[in-house]
Amino acid sequence: MSGELSGKVAAVTGGSRGIGLAIAEGFARAGADVVIASRKLENCEAVARRLTKEHGVRALPVAYHAARWEDSDRLADTVLSEFGRCDVLVNNAGMSPRHDGVGTIDEAYFDKVSGVNLKGPFRLSIRLGQRMVEAGGGSIINISTIGSLRPGADELVYACAKAGLNALTVGLSGEFAPAVRVNALLPGAVETDIAAAWPPDVRESAHRGTPLARLGTPADFVGPALWLATGASSFVTGTLIRVDGGAYRQMS
């Protein structure tokens, strides 16, 4: 899809690694100027330099902590002041720290996980989504998880927050219609630096439970994200799209 996003501006949270990095690279390859936002500014800066060098687009690094309401405001203000517009927002920043059982989860853990996975996407979507409506068009893409559909105890707070992100997706698809489309991608098990630390039995279970017989990779999300970001999906909104190798295949 080379050139398909020329003249567009895309903001990607959690854009310095994993799925977010792959999507940011895909958008830059398609001609979009990109905002790379994540907690570690130096990582964002390194990605931004590389994307500009390799694809000739403008890439802006921004430090961003999704659990902080004011950081979402600051990121939105930065995008709009630097570019004057935002055509695509990808809410990808997320976290799911391991814990020693649901009984050990404290308020700090709950608030941190909920903040990163739901509060940040909520505030950023409102700020940039409203500007998209004023401009007459745009696309918001939320990165959720298939665990939001069938949560396990080992990721319960994360799954609850992502289920809220699913609700945000559906709700804003009506609120911002017809100008702005809002959809979500729901990853299954994905080969990232986080997955590298999984015990062997967990990795093997992920392989066995997937009809396509492998873990996903960040590159598997570039095509779906590009589709949702462009006019190729102009009649698609309010949709939760499972990108999980068929692991959670179901009729509804």
Rank of each mutant, 00 (worst) to 15 (best):
G246M: 07
G188V: 08
M251Y: 09
A22G: 10
G84D: 10
G138R: 01
Y248F: 12
G26C: 04
A177C: 09
L128R: 04
A161Q: 00
T192Y: 12
L156F: 10
R249E: 10
L41F: 15
F235Q: 14
S2W: 11
L156M: 15
G7L: 02
A48V: 05
F221H: 04
A30M: 03
G246I: 08
G231C: 04
N142T: 00
L128Q: 06
W69R: 13
E107Y: 09
I241K: 00
V34M: 01
G31I: 07
A32D: 12
A24T: 05
T169R: 01
L165Q: 12
K8V: 05
V47C: 08
L165H: 04
G94D: 12
A219E: 15
G164D: 00
T237A: 06
G188I: 11
L212F: 10
L226D: 11
C86Q: 03
L228N: 04
R85S: 10
F122I: 00
K119L: 12
G152Q: 14
C44T: 07
L41E: 08
S173T: 00
L186V: 04
G245C: 13
V57M: 08
S205K: 15
V157Q: 07
G137W: 00
D33W: 01
V35D: 07
G129R: 05
T210G: 03
G26L: 04
C86M: 06
G171A: 13
E107I: 03
G20C: 05
C44E: 13
H207D: 05
D71P: 05
G115F: 14
E134L: 13
Y158N: 12
P187Q: 01
S16T: 13
A195V: 02
D106A: 08
G7F: 03
V113Y: 01
D111E: 15
I146K: 01
S72F: 07
A93S: 14
Q250C: 13
L228W: 01
P218N: 10
S252R: 09
A163F: 00
G209S: 14
R39L: 03
G31W: 02
A206I: 02
I146E: 11
